[in-house]
Structure formats: C-alpha cells, structure tokens
C-alpha cells in the first residue's frame, strides 16, 4: 500500500526528519562560508554587522524563497497535470518581476508596493498563460510550455526596455536581480517571505487531496467531488502570492519549482499531502546551498543564485521533456 502503509509512514517520517537535519546543516554551512572569514567567538563589531545584517538575512531569505518557489512549482504541476510547469518557465516569475520594477519606478520609496505589485503581476501572468494554453480539446504539455515561453519572452522584452531607461550604476544590480539574486536581502524581506511561505504551505496543504484528484484528470476530479474551479483559483492565487513576494525580494530564481518537487516525487511518490510540505523543506535546502555556491565560487566576486539553479535545472528540464 502506498498511502497508508506503516512502511511508508516510517519512510516519510524518516524523509521529513532527514530534510530538517539537512536544512540545519545547510544553514550552518552557509553561515560559516563566505568571502569574509568569520571566527565566531571573537567577532569584531564590523564582522558582527556582516553576520547579522548581511549574511544571516541573506541565508534565511534564500531558505524562504526556495521554499516558496518549490511550493508554487509542486502545486502548479499537480493542478495543470504537467510535470514541467514551473513559475519561471510559465512566465509567472517575469510577471512578478515586471510588477516589482513598475513599483520601483513609480513608488520607489514604498517598500510595501513592490511585493503587492509583484503579486499582481504574477497573477496576471498566470491568468494569461492559463487562458492561452487552454483549448477546447484540453491542455497538453507542450501547449502550456509554449504559452509560458511566449509570456516569458514578451515580459522579458518589456523588462529590458525598462532596464535600458535606468542609469548605468543601477543597471548591473538590476541585471543580477532579473537573474535571481539574494545579495539585496533585508530582514523585512525575510519576514514577509517567511509569513507568506508558511501561510502558503498551509493553504496548499489544505488542497493537497483535491490536487491528488486533479493530477489524475480534471473531469475525474469533478466527477469525484472536487470543486474544480475553486481549487484552481485557490492554487493559482496562492502560487502567485508565493512567487510574487519571492521575486520582489530576490528576482526570478529559476527552475527551483521544477527540480525540487521532481526529486521529492522520486523519493516518496506523488501524493501531494507529502510532496507539498516536503518540497517546501527541500526547496529551502536547495536555494541555501545554491546561494552558498554563488557567494563563494569566485569569491570575492559573486554570481546571481539564479545562474546556479538554472545550471542544474535546464538539463533536468530537457531530460523530463524527453521522458514525457
């Protein structure tokens, strides 16, 4: 038995505990490694500031962003019955990026405008992709991905247009941010993403069993008692919120929502009641580690974390596409 057997209960418990231990280890490694070597029992004031105001918020933000993106990916994949659905590839991240950028241009002083407009942008992009991909005959894998590509490239061109209006000094930090970059992390951004990630995980878990049926087929889910329309609105909105606040804080970190749920499913099967919470934990680990590499690989210079995740994610995408 897959769902209830004591064996699976034990193995999923083990997996969960293992992920928590791994997350603690990843966080610890991330704190110790960095271009500024810290000796923890004799910190100068300056090093104290580096640790608590720069490095720690960045690491923790990486964890919450990773969790958020993995949650969004896992739930969108089940909802759309498409193992390739991913916020970045569907253009949802770019929608959020455009929202963030517009907020930056029009309400530069306001810190609340950015995540709100990112959420709006992510929602609109989701709606656009869904409407384009939907057809009378249903929605196949390729059509959804193509719609995502179209929305992504369209939004990218607007983003580039806006970027070119910025002055040169800001340009580099924006280019980094567009690729997914955690170096601008603040404590407030961390708190906001933490709250949204926790709420998102709860809301999506409440839809997990309905998503199990949606994963089999929309018509089936409807016939067997799922309020399909309601589930769709809840999952789309929650995913847009998760992606929105993540992108507002750290730009479009790609492929997290693809890689992480895939690895989780390989380990414990495709029951969303396990996949959703475990993806959150695994996503946090993945981005914390990826960002540690981004910070240290060519220290003292830095890479955007999105470059590292894409390096892992793109080959996996091709593999999944071929397997399909």
């Amino acid at each position: 038995m897959k769902v209830l057997s004591p064996k699976l209960q034990v193995s999923s418990l083990r997996f969960g505990v293992g992920l928590i231990v791994l997350l603690v280890i990843a966080l610890a490694v991330a704190v110790f490694l960095g271009s500024e070597k810290l000796r923890f029992f004799e910190l100068t004031d300056e090093q104290n500031a580096i640790l608590f105001d720069i490095r720690l918020p960045r690491i923790l933000l990486g964890a919450t962003v990773g969790a958020s993106l993995a949650l969004a990916g896992a739930s969108l994949q089940s909802l759309l019955r498409n193992p390739l659905a991913e916020p970045y590839l569907l253009g949802v991240s770019n929608g959020a990026a455009l929202g963030t950028m517009l907020a930056f241009i029009f309400f530069a002083a306001s810190e609340t405008a950015r995540p709100l407009m990112a959420f709006a942008g992510a929602s609109l992009a989701t709606l656009a992709v869904y409407q384009m991909a939907k057809s009378r005959a249903g929605m196949n894998v390729e059509r959804l991905i193509l719609s995502g590509v179209i929305v992504t490239t369209f939004l990218s061109s607007i983003l580039v247009l806006l970027t070119s209006l910025l002055d040169a000094a800001k340009l580099r930090s924006f280019t980094f941010w567009l690729l997914g970059d955690l170096s601008q992390a603040t404590k407030n951004a961390f708190y906001l993403t933490l709250i949204v990630a926790v709420l998102g995980a709860i809301v999506l878990s409440s839809q997990a069993r309905a998503l199990n049926l949606m994963m089999i087929g929309e018509r089936d889910a409807f016939d067997f008692g799922v309020e399909v329309g309601r589930t769709r609105v809840i999952v789309f909105t929650t995913a847009a919120a998760l992606v929105g606040v993540s992108v507002a804080a750290s730009g479009s970190v790609g492929y997290v929502g693809l890689i992480v749920p895939h690895l989780v499913r390989l380990t414990i099967g495709s029951d969303n009641r396990l996949v959703i919470p475990f993806s959150a934990l695994a996503g946090a680990i993945f981005v914390v580690l990826a960002d540690t590499i981004a910070r240290t690989a060519i220290a003292p210079r830095e890479l955007p974390v999105g470059a590292i995740t894409a390096l892992v994610g793109a080959p996996l995408f091709i593999y999944l596409l071929r397997k399909n």
Binding site: M1, K2, V3, S78, R81, N82, P83, V141, N212, L213, M215, I216, G217, D220, F224, R265, G269, S270, D271, N324
Partner: peptide, 15 residues
C-alpha cells in the same frame, strides 16, 4: 481516463 503522473492503483481507487 488518462494519467500523466505515476499514480499507483491504490491511490487511484482511493480517490
């Protein structure tokens, strides 16, 4: 009835 994700027979019937 089509399934894209690897759903087990037990999971399917339990749905």
């Amino acid at each position: 009835t089509e399934t894209k994700f690897p759903v087990s027979v037990a999971e399917f019937v339990l749905s």
